[in-house]
Deep mutational scan, measured.
Amino acid sequence: MAAAAAAGAGPEMVRGQVFDVGPRYTNLSYIGEGAYGMVCSAYDNVNKVRVAIKKISPFEHQTYCQRTLREIKILLRFRHENIIGINDIIRAPTIEQMKDVYIVQDLMETDLYKLLKTQHLSNDHICYFLYQILRGLKYIHSANVLHRDLKPSNLLLNTTCDLKICDFGLARVADPDHDHTGFLTEYVATRWYRAPEIMLNSKGYTKSIDIWSVGCILAEMLSNRPIFPGKHYLDQLNHILGILGSPSQEDLNCIINLKARNYLLSLPHKNKVPWNRLFPNADSKALDLLDKMLTFNPHKRIEVEQALAHPYLEQYYDPSDEPIAEAPFKFDMELDDLPKEKLKELIFEETARFQPGYRS
């Protein structure tokens, strides 16, 4: 834990890192770190609560700039109880001085990944967590956004079992017609939660990839272990087919990539493993919904509104309290091709509203 900075004593240090967030945020305490930044909790002297502050230093890398800009653009436009918001952003007053960006968010005690390492969940908890994931996802999908990296560590939890989806750095506007060349190379989302079509096709992607990830998360809540822990690309596919069985001819016809289709045709026939054999203690309604989410063919996979209306979630289902976005989200430009200098300018502009004396 960093010592509390005395008023006016300059930035606090946390594990050798400068955290320049005073005077409003003090009493910093280390939480963890990701690929390009550290997260601390801090005391907000204005709202009198502890908050989470993520320090991001992305400006050396085009990919990190892209992810940072995506996350900020999306989260500043989203407003939903099951999606983490941005409360404040701290950065230098000029673009030349801006080396880091500090993002202030609600402090959540833990995440689903940490929880599943230590606790076996009751059916009631599984049901409530799944409902909140789908409630947040309904809003995301209504904005025409794909999260693309749903996994237990991106689901934040607090002691009252509130759940918030975080990390929109890989999110995209849904565009089933656009052929994202190089899709697989830039697709760094965790393999275990990846839909089979991501490994088999490169053309376009749809909201059904997020539903697949939610199915993987439900299976993990039922058993405290990942359902498809593939060691590499082909191993991942083999794990999936080992449980779902061989795809039907109709399902194979959806695979545009001939090499991928021929690979699947070359494999020995596998039978589907019954879900109640894998999860003998699970609620039968939970397994019915799991089956509809972990469907090989993305066109037959359940959609988020149908999933919310499934009998497993009937005690929570309330369409009048499951809000959607006001308007579909649009990125003005494809960020993939922009140089990091341009992305830095866009991050600077996007964060201006939090600067003292800002006038829109």
Rank of each mutant, 00 (worst) to 15 (best):
Y43P: 11
E186R: 07
R135V: 02
D162L: 02
L69N: 06
M333E: 04
A219W: 11
D111E: 11
N144R: 10
R67Y: 13
Q355E: 12
S153I: 11
R301Y: 04
A6D: 12
R225K: 05
N47M: 10
D106H: 05
E326C: 03
L76R: 05
E250V: 12
I90F: 14
L170P: 02
D162N: 14
A3D: 13
E96Y: 08
S29L: 10
Q62Y: 11
A7F: 03
I347M: 15
S223R: 06
S213N: 11
V145P: 11
M108L: 13
M333Q: 10
H61L: 15
E303V: 13
F228C: 01
K164L: 04
T351K: 07
Q315P: 08
G10M: 09
P328D: 00
L28V: 12
D235Y: 14
I227A: 05
I53Q: 14
Y128A: 01
I211E: 05
I302F: 15
V18M: 09
L146P: 00
T351A: 12
D336E: 14
R91A: 08
I165G: 09
I84K: 04
M98F: 12
V39S: 13
I209P: 04
L308R: 03
A327T: 08
Y30W: 03
L170W: 08
P274W: 01
L184N: 09
G32K: 00
G215K: 10
T185D: 04
A52R: 06
M13G: 11
S248W: 08
E345D: 15
Y193R: 09
P152Y: 01
A5Y: 05
R301V: 02
E305N: 06
I95K: 13
V214K: 06
R70E: 09
R79Q: 09
H61C: 04
L289N: 09
E334G: 01
I90T: 02
R50A: 12
R70A: 04
T159D: 02
P226N: 04
L343T: 10
F348A: 07
A7P: 13
P176F: 06
L237V: 00
C254M: 00
H120N: 14
F78T: 02
M293I: 14
L278M: 12
P247A: 00
V39K: 02
S320G: 09
K151D: 10
I133S: 10
M221V: 00
A352R: 11
A6K: 04
H141C: 07
A309C: 07
I209V: 00
G242V: 08
C254L: 08
E349H: 03
F348R: 10
N47W: 13
I72N: 14
T26A: 07
L244H: 11
V14Q: 13
M38H: 09
V14F: 14
A6M: 13
E349F: 00
W275K: 05
P93I: 09
C40D: 03
L294E: 11
K138H: 06
F279L: 15
Y316M: 05
R77A: 07
I324V: 00
G34K: 01
K340A: 06
F129P: 02
V49C: 12
G10E: 12
L150H: 05
N276P: 03
T190D: 07
K330R: 05
K272A: 08
V304M: 10
F331T: 08
A219I: 10
P268N: 01
R50Q: 13
R225G: 05
K272Q: 10
D291C: 06
K73Q: 07
Q315V: 02
K48A: 14
Y358M: 10
S223C: 12
K292T: 05
L290A: 05
L289G: 12
R50C: 07
R79F: 06
H310Q: 13
L258V: 12
D283Y: 15
F19A: 14
Y312D: 03
L252A: 07
K117H: 04
R15T: 11
A5V: 13
H147F: 01
I90M: 06
F329E: 00
G37P: 15
M221E: 05
R15I: 13
E96F: 10
T185V: 00
E109S: 06
E305A: 13
R79H: 02
R15H: 10
I240S: 04
N253R: 10
K203D: 11
P196D: 09
K231Y: 10
G37R: 11
D179F: 12
S284G: 07
K344R: 13
F331L: 15
L252T: 04
C254G: 05
E109K: 13
L343C: 05
